[in-house]
Design a protein around this nucleic acid. Structure first.
Lengths: 154, 154
DNA sequence: GAAAGAGGTCACGAGGTCAG
DNA sequence: CTGACCTCGTGACCTCTTTC
């Protein structure tokens, strides 16, 4: 009802842009991306193989299942990691602070923070290129399934 | 248990009218039309050639294998596409609402419904000549463009 | 005790297989 | 080529655990 419900409601999934279900593994994500990360990151990105699109897939609600490699990359870029996971509720000030920063930044977790990036680059290095393309991997390329006729259009 | 079984049972394939096996590629279809679409649409409609009947074949359970072009046309008109596929289990909201309506009309798919027409004609236009859009096949849906703001969550 | 995230469960769809 | 059947990934819910 109150602020924290709103907090959650108007948040978008940092990975696919859908309405977020909550704060999972260190970032606001939807249920799907939460489960995906929980499942996938255990095995590591290496098991996913390479993106057929050179790691430039656009991850949206519709396209998120098309390329797991890019989805995991987005998860890591959003700051998700096992080390960021934690049981129990988060304090309100945490979330507010997080949102004000507009990033996955918690002053209390900062020491974990660089661990995050390490993790991200390490995992990504094993899977695809090591450049860890920042920003929204967002070119207009939605041809991850290269031979499908209808691209996901958004 | 029985509810969604019923749900699926009294649904009919949007393409050929047989009992639907589930919600595939964005429409309720039978197993056959699901597989057909999965196989065919990858290659695109162009590979099918033209309908020898001017695109006016009636697609039923018995006749669906006769003309692949018209079958694919029906698939597209039904709203099938790779991008509208949906993974995972259905939300309770979907089931309850769907069952209460007692119709084969999902309110959330309605917005897809007019998108349907666009896509169908667009894709078909690329494959063969423009006469194909005038089919007997029942739905001459000429309604377009309303607000596509979705409460739809899935 | 309530709130909320982690992890588990399992309904379901995509895609593959293969006899017909 | 077709479509019944199978496997596997997905994600909506549910339960458990932890924090407020």
């Amino acid at each position: 009802m109150s602020s924290q419900d709103d907090l959650k409601t108007w948040q978008r999934c940092r990975v696919c842009g859908e309405a977020a279900a909550g704060f999972h593994f260190g970032a606001f994500t939807c249920e799907g991306c939460k489960s995906f990360f929980g499942r996938t990151h255990v095995n590591g990105a290496a098991s996913l193989g390479e993106c057929r699109n050179g790691g430039r897939c656009v991850v949206t609600r519709k396209t998120r299942t098309a390329c797991k490699t890019c989805r995991l990359r987005r998860c890591l870029q959003a700051g998700m990691s096992r080390s960021s996971s934690r049981y129990g509720r988060r304090s309100n000030w945490f979330k507010i602070h997080y949102l004000q920063q507009g990033q996955e930044k918690d002053p209390r977790v900062q020491e974990v923070d660089h661990k995050r990036h390490d993790e991200a680059s390490r995992v990504l290095a094993t899977s695809s290129d090591s450049t860890t393309t920042t920003g929204t991997c967002g070119t207009d390329a939605n041809k991850c399934r290269s031979n499908s006729n209808d691209k996901a259009r958004e």
